[in-house]
């Protein structure tokens, strides 16, 4: 968690990226222009936890990926470059052409391991396996988020473990944005009681799961998307 809340101060290096991909994704080549690290080549889709399958990968996609040295504080951008996936929202391609692999803050909260390997073998694999399955069946195997602001709210509510109510979600996130939620604030359950006399322990557990920098980012994105 240190990495995502920005306490560690470590920056992602080209060597670390190469170490993460050279074995697992040997057809991706990593290069750096000094500002960003770019991965390009063939991304291999596998069964979870499988090192090698007798016939090779299930499928593969041509991709390009941009990584900031501030990863995982900054979300990577992934582009499908083989023109296999139509550039439409229904196929979870953003208007600017990048793949909407996941709602980043949701993944940061739901998973403990935020290494590049974990991202490549987790959400990336699920996204492209999902794309393959959609090609075959027209269905998304792991479900999908609504588009735009609504999908963000769904993802954040899931991350917090609360029902998806726009007002309640924002109030929770405002509480969680503080280093320690104030006991004299009203409890988000709308009981009218002070937090210290109501769901203080539940909120403390939520605060441990969603640290203030992540909660602030969620709020900030909700505001930005709400203005669109």
């Amino acid at each position: 968690m240190d990495q995502i809340v920005g306490r560690s101060g470590t920056l992602l290096t080209l060597d670390q990226v190469r170490a993460a991909v050279s074995f697992d994704q040997p057809n991706l080549i990593a290069e750096s222009d000094g500002k960003r690290i770019r991965l390009e080549g063939t991304y291999l889709v596998f069964e979870k936890g499988v090192v090698a399958a007798p016939d090779g990968p299930i499928t593969s996609f041509e991709i390009s990926m941009e990584l900031s040295e501030r990863y995982p504080r900054q979300e990577p951008r992934v582009f499908e470059t083989g023109e296999r996936i139509p550039r439409v929202a229904e196929r979870h391609i953003n208007p600017n052409g990048d793949c909407c692999v996941t709602v980043w803050e949701n993944w940061l909260v739901e998973v403990n391991d935020h290494t590049l390997s974990s991202y490549l073998n987790g959400p990336m694999n699920e996204y492209f396996l999902g794309q393959f399955w959609y090609e075959k069946t027209g269905k998304w195997p792991f479900g999908e988020r609504s588009h735009g602001l609504k999908g963000l709210e769904e993802a954040y509510a899931d991350a917090l473990g609360i029902s998806n109510n726009a007002e309640s979600l924002r109030y929770h996130l405002r509480l969680l944005s503080h280093d320690w939620p104030k006991g004299h604030w009203l409890c988000p359950c709308k009981s009218g009681k002070l937090l210290r006399h109501c769901h203080r322990d539940d909120l403390a557990a939520m605060h441990a799961k969603v640290p203030p920098p992540v909660a602030r980012r969620m709020l900030s994105r909700l505001k930005a998307d709400g203005r669109l």
Binding site: H92, P95, C100, T102, F142, R145, L149
Partner: peptide, 11 residues
């Protein structure tokens, strides 16, 4: 096992 993510699309 529980998927880690669901695809989304920005507005």
């Amino acid at each position: 096992d529980g998927p880690q993510s669901k695809p989304w699309t920005r507005s």
